[in-house]
Design a protein around this nucleic acid. Structure first.
Lengths: 230, 230
DNA sequence: CAGTGGTCTAGACCACCTC
DNA sequence: AGGTGGTCTAGACCACTGG
């Protein structure tokens, strides 16, 4: 791991171990520089990283402070953290022709094969969401039922060595269709949160498109932002 | 405006004027350095800014590329952009004691006065959302009906000189209550997207707490993220 | 006005992509 | 191998906060 990531990790650990809460002050830049024996820019880079993650905020002329999420039970909408004890039931796993929309999103021709996965995810045994995903086969070269029962993205990154770069996320609320409702153990027409994501490799090529339909009573999300009115 | 912000703005304009699309290549770092006559770090800082905004992505060993949102009609969940032609109907504006929850979120005592605003927002004449907000009076020192009919945050920043730092956003789906439904011209129990936000000044103090209830057919959002699995 | 973070420079060296 | 972005340094100077 490179220096500034290492430093960021250590500062995070420090916050954790000392159980610091929102507003608590961290050592000043000068102190961090000498403690880690690196230049100012390196510490700054580490702090920028933590600022992006929403772990700290810096105030010029004043100091560096802890920023910590207070609400419990919320999942991070963007980093896919905060959802523990997840299990999956695979409904479908096959190689097939994508829908026109999916083909467009994962940048393949409509007559080109893709991996298609449909599964229901449970948290502590309770239905959480219904997920349908399409994967570009030239990047996600292999999937099987066992992999797909666990964390697909974990495998894609660690198993296949795919380097994920960025993603575009779209969301809206709507009414459940009959078939969706059945999987989530809800009545037809119940509210639902729909989240569509397109995932890209570091070089910008899209490799996955997923549509996730959440059980409205089970899905509480948070997002942290800097500069909310940029 | 400082150098790297200026450069970022110019690069954005360049993308706009040349109608570049996702994947198009920008000039290399060296070229940007000489063109703007600044050091490498300054250009890098500008590009980091654009990367955070989701306007470009950089690939080591390859180049700098344009990243552009393709879907139309989606609002940015975090930067409060993309919603044009917004008008508001003020339902309530008063100084009063906050709810316990609101008091906690804007960091005041429960018996301390806050500004309370309730309004319905319309986009192109169509009900978009119902919004209830609480403002810490020691920071948002003044509001009146005229201000509250327009963009409140615009006024808070430009009129009152408050420097907004960061915000925490929480969201979930649910069923509309009767009174909410009435304001949004929907039937009781219709789906809805609930978005709660806590806004902080640059020094970390919270100054506003708002709950926004969106008309499910009118609210389509997007968020861009880098490192979706950090 | 002292303390603290932010900006910017010039340059060395490293890691990755593409051919 | 050559080109391109990423990391890191050392240091100058600037801008904001808070007593």
């Amino acid at each position: 791991m490179i220096k500034y990531q290492q430093i960021a990790a250590e500062i995070e650990t420090y916050i954790e171990e000392n159980a610091l809460v929102q507003g608590d002050k961290l050592p000043v830049l000068e102190a961090l520089m000498t403690h880690f024996n690196v230049s100012k820019s390196t510490v700054t880079k580490a702090l920028e990283l933590l600022e992006k993650k929403g772990a700290v905020f810096q105030v010029r002329g004043s100091g560096i402070f802890v920023r910590r999420q207070k609400r419990k039970g919320y999942m991070d909408l963007l980093s896919h953290q905060g959802s523990e004890n997840i299990t999956s039931k695979v409904i479908e796993l096959e190689v097939k022709k994508p829908t026109k929309e999916a083909a467009h999103h994962v940048n393949v021709e409509p007559d080109e094969d893709v991996y298609y996965v449909k599964r229901v995810r449970y948290r502590n045994g309770q239905a959480l969401c219904l997920e349908e995903s399409y994967f570009n086969k030239s990047i996600v070269t292999y999937l099987n039922k066992e992999i797909v029962s666990e964390s697909i993205f974990d495998y894609i990154q660690k198993g296949l060595g795919v380097k994920v770069g960025f993603s575009d996320v779209y969301l809206h609320a709507g009414k459940l269709k009959r078939e969706e409702a059945k999987h989530l153990c809800l009545e037809n027409g119940a509210p639902s949160l729909y989240v569509e994501s397109i995932f890209h490799v570091t070089n910008g090529q899209p490799f996955a498109f997923s549509t996730v339909t959440y059980h409205f009573e089970q899905s509480h999300f948070f997002v942290q932002t800097n500069s909310p009115f940029s």
